[in-house]
Design a protein around this nucleic acid. Sequence first.
DNA 1: CGTAACTCATTACCTATGCTAAGGAAAACC
DNA 2: GGTTTTCCTTAGCATAGGTAATGAGTTACG
Lengths: 145, 145
Amino acid sequence: MADLSHGDDADAVNALRSAVMRLGRRLKHQRVDETLSPTEMSVLGTLARCGSATPGELARKEHVQPPSMTRIVALLEAKGLVRLEPHAEDRRQKVVTSTERAEAMLEESRRKRNAWLTAMAEGLDEDEWSKLRAAAPVLEKLAHL
Amino acid sequence: MADLSHGDDADAVNALRSAVMRLGRRLKHQRVDETLSPTEMSVLGTLARCGSATPGELARKEHVQPPSMTRIVALLEAKGLVRLEPHAEDRRQKVVTSTERAEAMLEESRRKRNAWLTAMAEGLDEDEWSKLRAAAPVLEKLAHL
DNA sequence: CGTAACTCATTACCTATGCTAAGGAAAACC
DNA sequence: GGTTTTCCTTAGCATAGGTAATGAGTTACG
């Protein structure tokens, strides 16, 4: 594992935490569809990546409690972005699948997000941006740990 | 500026957004002092870095609306972590200063945060961690842009 | 000067989004 | 076959943010 005991790493940790929190708050405001919360967007993204999933699986992946996921899935279904089907072998569970409409929305949202981040990146040079690009997968891994 | 038009960067942008959001959610739960919200912590951090500031300045820096900052400052004052003084030249404004107690708490919290992130970093190798460390300042810059 | 317009902080109220606790149905396990 | 466990859900609550409206203080302009 990495050694986090000396000062530079402690500083990095603090910078990371602070930046992630603030950036997260700003990203919330840049939602592509005003009627969709950040977590709802994130769920659609997860479904696009992983295909179908049960509410429980989604709750674990999004680090949210099951009751919260129940509501999120219900809202997504009401908006026609997700389909709910009975589970094949286990009748307690349900299977959540994103619709074609969700795919289209994700594509649209990707464009808008990029536009916003492009504006943000005006203030970054190529070197800074490449550091960010290199760190993106690591942050993802960390978020899933 | 960086070129965000091709696919790799679009992917990086998506990964970044998703990871920042999820990591932010998990960091919220790892608060060092249960009685302090993440934004309250962030305000104390800002004060430690920048010295005194008015509520309005803090609201802008934390990307929060003024009324929210009013409440945050009031809570911090009630906990003895912040001192409120009248502004020298402008009697509309107030000056917020962190107390010695806040400094001690920040130091304590830094230790606890590091412990948590150390546990997280168990799953990272040295290369991944160094990428993260390189990106930390860039993320901070982005968060402040 | 004095009043109009603006700015800063605050108050009051509302909403969004998460949580815990509790329940009901299906599966798994003696 | 009855008990325990697992999964989703319902109900109620807490937190943390936002908007709109208020009040006090400052600045600008006529």
